[in-house]
Design a protein around this nucleic acid. Structure first.
Lengths: 331, 331
DNA sequence: GCTTCGTCTGAGAGCGCTCTCGGGTCTATC
DNA sequence: GATAGACCCGAGAGCGCTCTCAGACGAAGC
């Protein structure tokens, strides 16, 4: 039996051509005659040849793989398992890679050991890295060391990024609440270190100012517990609240629990709009009206960008954030 | 500037030893004198040398990486982004790999093109593959082609696996419901193709028989929607239902919505126990009492097993499934 | 008929590492 | 003092591929 895997050498021999020619046709490189091409293809098929990606990577100096990296910003171990955002990025990147015979690698990097991690990833010389989650300074450092990256969150202007219209999204959410007749609209924000949270904070400020409302908000941590606690605080502070904008669905799920726990009804007494349209939005009860972040599309676009070579400095792609009406706002 | 990365050759030269010796100390191989070891370490530190993993893989015929693979069993594109189970596996594997300088690769394989995917992964010659989700037949095929795998779901007896006590878990859940005075306990099961779902079905059957109750159940799909619909059906069929065991939290979140939508109160009118203790359990309202599946621990154990070489055929590790009391059962 | 150009092909030199194997040195044993 | 054994070390042969470069060949131009 031919247990041993055939090499390109075997293919070349079987096709009666040189290794170089075999390599050329296998890689669709120009400068091969139809005859050679046909013979090599036949040999490949006959032997069941598959290129050894490792050897390929060593010789060419580049690996057909994309790194997806997330920064563990002081989050608890295992956060990855409960973060609905991260897995959506994976879900977006995966299909585009599958189509082109590229691999997906996962990395989580600690802020403390970031330098080393960046170095490791940079030396790998893959097609590039998708920064799932990062702080601006880290993204910049990463970019300086290795240009083939694209951030999924707002960063310094040079770093290529896929950006959602967070600010407009929040404004749309608050406008919707206002349109529904709500006048005591408060917000629960995400952690200040998170660039998305910052944008959403800005959006809320603009929205309430524009509507002539007072700005009332509490800070959460983008986790359910934080959302619950923030909502309770807000409700204690002002029992007349009639609407909440919550900066992500996970916190919104907690807020919903807090609101019903105080005997209020959703959406009648208090309406809630979340952000992300993650799995948390549909698991909440009632299901959350939320601003849909097209994370999968953004991630797919990021992967495609990387596949096309080094992104241009400051490359930006913007994505709309759309309102999804469910049961936490009146119909 | 030393822009060009130093190779082991450079290290050897700087240390005044041969490449072989440098390699030996870098890999902690036996048979090096203290003097050589010290000199090589010094050279490594001075030059900032980091081994090229690709070259290493080519020469040794093995890549320091673990594959995590999930089977797209007719699930919609993007399911990965909403599956709380899969990301917990990632969360479990990641930290153990981080500690030993190994990488994590992600794969999703289609049932139709499984053969090709298995071949690809097998040829990669990584440390092994963690089958996050699979059907028994596919796991067996995979195992035959490549022994370095471990399944996270029940499979044929030869395939190394990390197994949760699904059956005992379900029995414990139903017993708890019974202990709470519930007598009309129904179940919502997962899809028949899923091996975990099958075990949980078995567990429920045993539990109700043992308690002398009638077995009533509906089938769901492990998704929220399916849980919602199944619960409605069940409630229509028998309005006197006082407890539901739901085979995963995602469906349980849907069931909770269905129950409250019919005006019933949880946990007083109907108590609910889910399964998994995933993010869906805490996002549901009220939060779900559920059976905690130690997915992260199981995944970490799987990764460690692979790190130690080829698992013994039929290797099995069992994990307990514990009750987590929250608000969908009375206190 | 000879040069020139363009197209195709093969030889061979790496890519950076691992690992075997043979030789050299040093201690223990008689 | 000779011999065996243990312990280190270095030379060198790969691992399977890519890619440059020069040569071969044929057509076109003078």
């Amino acid at each position: 039996m031919d247990k041993v895997k055939p090499t390109i050498e075997d293919v070349a021999r079987a096709a009666g051509v040189s290794r170089a020619s075999a390599s050329r046709v296998i890689n669709d490189a120009p400068g091969t005659s139809d005859l050679v091409r046909a013979r090599v293809h036949a040999a490949v098929a006959e032997l069941g040849y598959r290129p050894n990606e490792v050897a390929r990577a060593l010789a060419s100096g580049r690996q057909r793989a994309v790194d997806v990296v997330a920064v563990t910003c002081g989050r608890p171990t295992g956060w990855l398992g409960t973060d609905p955002y991260f897995s959506r990025i994976l879900a977006g990147v995966m299909p585009v890679l599958d189509g082109v015979n590229a691999q997906l690698r996962l990395h989580t990097i600690d802020r403390e050991r970031a330098a080393e991690a960046i170095e490791t990833i940079a030396r790998n010389a893959t097609l590039g890295a998708v920064l799932a989650d990062t702080t601006p300074d880290l993204a910049t450092r990463f970019y300086r060391r290795c240009r083939r990256i694209v951030s999924m969150v707002p960063t310094a202007a040079v770093v290529p990024a896929m950006l959602a219209d967070n600010i407009d999204g929040v404004i749309a959410a608050v406008d919707e609440l206002h349109r529904l007749g709500r006048r005591r609209i408060v917000a629960i924000h995400g952690p200040a270190v998170n660039p998305c949270a910052t944008d959403r904070r800005t959006g809320f400020r603009r929205a309430v100012r524009h509507l002539g409302l007072v700005e009332v908000s509490a800070d959460g941590d983008f986790q359910r517990d934080g959302g619950y606690r923030a909502a309770r605080r807000l409700l204690d502070q002002d029992p007349e609240i009639d609407a909440m904008f919550v900066a992500n669905d996970l916190m919104a799920a907690g807020a919903v629990q807090a609101i019903t726990a105080t005997g209020r009804r959703i959406p009648d007494d208090v309406s809630v709009i979340g952000f992300d349209d993650s799995i948390a939005a549909v698991c909440a009860n009632p299901q959350l009206t939320t601003m849909r972040l097209p994370v999968e599309d953004m991630a797919a676009a990021a992967a495609r960008l990387l596949l096309n070579g080094t992104p241009a400095p400051g490359h930006r792609q913007r994505f709309p954030v759309d309102l999804v009406r469910r049961d936490s706002t009146p119909h």
